[in-house]
Amino acid sequence: MPTEDVSARFVDLDEWPTLDAVEAMYEGQLSAVAAVRPALASIARAVDDAAHGLRRGGRLVYAGAGTSGRVAVQDGAELPPTFDWPLDQLVFAMAGGPKALMRSAEGAEDDEADAAAKVEAAGIGADDVVIGLAASGATPYTVEFVRRSTARGAVTLGVANNPAAPLLAVARHPILIETGAEVLAGSTRMKAGTAQKVALNLFSTAVMIRLGRVYRGMMVHMQASNAKLHRRAESMVALITGCDEAAAAEALRQVDWDVKRAALVVNGMDPDTAGVLIDRHGGSLRRALAALEGADRASGAAGG
């Protein structure tokens, strides 16, 4: 298993000068990022498949053990503040439970019965998107969780760092990221963990783009929950509409700091109608603005 191999290059690493050791580990991190490139097409296919169920109210479910589980939780935990992703559409199925986030629970990764129980308890279904991560690709807990989720019709992703891994065989979307031997043999929090985090960044952000939570490279569906984010929201509305920030702030206050609705309010809509229009267009501000512009053109032509 490549991620467990001892690299001949690093057998005397503990005797190297500190700078040389740090440079070697840095090079490993760069190679981990590069290893994601061959998986980009697989990630893109998984994004398009996932978006369908999520639009119908499906959940993002992250499953893993040890380092991979903690990487998974880190990605999912960022989605509510960044994209206002609903908490009831987010599930963390960490081997060993929440306590394993802070304290190692290595034996939990072998517990297939716990994985089966968690799938059943969560009621995994066809609209759900299950992301299972395991550097080895053979972690019994993660393989069983993804296998059962696939059997229940969920969109499943298996992210592994070793070829021919069982996890890849049980997922609808196998995502192989071959990072090879670690600088420290078996320390998959290094190259494998970095590559997994990159893959998750790409997947979850692309999903949010497909779901209309991004417009013109801006996080227009974020939670504006503090002064810094209020200023960011004001800047976004001003940039989108061409108004000044004072007008943007006034519109945002009318809609509880909802950037998408505020952009339509600045364009003359009342808050409730703005919400209806955005919902009608699947949450897409781009399509809502296009519809508003089309309606304005039609009104102008009729008036002329």
Rank of each mutant, 00 (worst) to 15 (best):
R148Y: 04
G64I: 03
V11Y: 07
A72V: 05
D48M: 05
F92L: 05
R216L: 11
M94D: 07
A117F: 02
P166C: 05
A100I: 05
H52G: 02
L90D: 05
G303N: 15
G69E: 11
L239E: 13
A116D: 05
A298Q: 09
A249L: 07
V36F: 03
N162T: 07
P17H: 03
M219D: 06
G212A: 10
D111G: 06
E23G: 14
R253P: 11
L252W: 13
D48Y: 09
I209R: 10
K191E: 07
P86G: 12
P81R: 01
V130Y: 10
V146P: 13
A262W: 03
G282V: 01
L277D: 08
A72M: 03
M222D: 15
P140Q: 02
M218Y: 00
R103H: 13
A238Q: 04
Y62V: 04
R45S: 13
L285V: 06
E4Y: 11
P98T: 04
R297T: 14
K228P: 11
A39C: 14
V276P: 05
G282I: 01
E182Y: 05
L54A: 11
A77H: 02
P98M: 13
G76K: 02
S225V: 08
N226A: 09
M190N: 10
L13M: 10
H173T: 09
A171D: 10
D279C: 08
P38K: 00
R59K: 03
T67F: 07
P86K: 01
V11Q: 14
R213M: 14
R232C: 07
D14Y: 07
D111A: 15
L90G: 04
M236F: 03
G123H: 02
R297L: 12
Y215F: 12
A171Y: 02
D114M: 14
L239V: 10
T3F: 03
E178W: 07
E112Q: 11
T3C: 09
A263V: 02
A249T: 14
V207F: 01
G180M: 01
L176F: 05
A63I: 03
F10E: 08
A138Y: 00
W257E: 09
D12F: 06
A151E: 15
G28C: 07
S7C: 12
S7M: 00
P166I: 00
E106T: 00
E27C: 12
E234R: 11
G28A: 08
D84N: 13
R280A: 15
A34I: 07
I177E: 02
A117P: 12
L285W: 03
A34R: 04
G153I: 08
A274G: 04
V265K: 08
Y141K: 06
S204E: 02
A95I: 06
L60A: 02
L167N: 08
R280I: 12
G153Q: 02
W16Q: 11
I175K: 06
V11I: 15
M102S: 06
E27D: 15
A122W: 14
A185F: 06
V155G: 06
E27I: 03
G303M: 15
M1S: 14
G97W: 04
D75L: 01
P163S: 15
M218W: 03
A246S: 14
K260N: 08
T205G: 09
T194N: 05
L60M: 09
